[in-house]
Design a binder for these strands. Sequence first.
DNA 1: CCCCAGGCGGTTG
DNA 2: CAACCGCCTGGG
Length: 280
Amino acid sequence: MQYCDEKNKILLAGADVLDIVKTFECGQCFRWNADSSGVYTGVVNGSTARVWTENGSVFLCSDGDEAMWRDYFDLDTDYESIRRGFFGYGEYMRTCAEYGAGIRILRQNKWEALCSFIISQCNNIPRIKKIVETLCREFGEGIYLDGQSYYTFPSAERIAALEAEDLAPLRCGYRAPYIITAARAVAEGEIDLDALSEPATSCAEAVKTLRSLHGIGEKVANCVVLFSLRKLDAFPVDVWMKRALRENFPPDFDPKVLGSHAGIAQQYIFYYARSGGKQN
DNA sequence: CCCCAGGCGGTTG
DNA sequence: CAACCGCCTGGG
């Protein structure tokens, strides 16, 4: 990165334990985009960053807080040992876990994840990304990076002040009232996402609380809990997962047997299924 | 024109 | 309980 100030450049991890292509493209996040040379640009918690792989290491350039980024990439969790722990769950599980080497579950902004996964329902990834970007452009705050403008994800408070009709530019259809409902619940403190992310709150409890919101079902709730509330035992099951489970596991298979990191196994299975089992 | 896409909620048998 | 079905919208 020629225009990254050395003081803003930090070494995140080895490319073997953080594969940015897999991590950003495995369907968990919607705001990282690569340029033609593979440099990703994203906006997280109000800060922009560029992330790239160079000589076997992953670097990040941002004027944001380094501790925040280390937390975001969950660098203190040993994914390699967790991943190898799944090798013993049968041939298929092992194949998925090998294929998914380098995937990490990002610790995303909670409100952003809630809102994004509401948008995700019955939508494909390009369209989800498009709707999310429009949401940010319309209601987020502009920030500049290398002379280009980017937008922060709008706060729950900002969205809570809107009516469903105000979201018309997003063209997100029947999801608009779900977004407003969720924004108001978060903004008014009816739902405390920070409290739900505390280790003291179980995955099941967090899912149950999120499901009390109109428009949040089992799948969306589990995505939010896994990708932003830091419960690695959450196990979102969508149509891809349903098929993968049906075709490769016994009919009575209960994902709970995968243990406290079942959600990471879910991501390996999901990524493998979505990739069609192809080589990279 | 039809069908479907990484769901949800309400109704029906 | 499971099996439907409508829902906004865009793309094949």
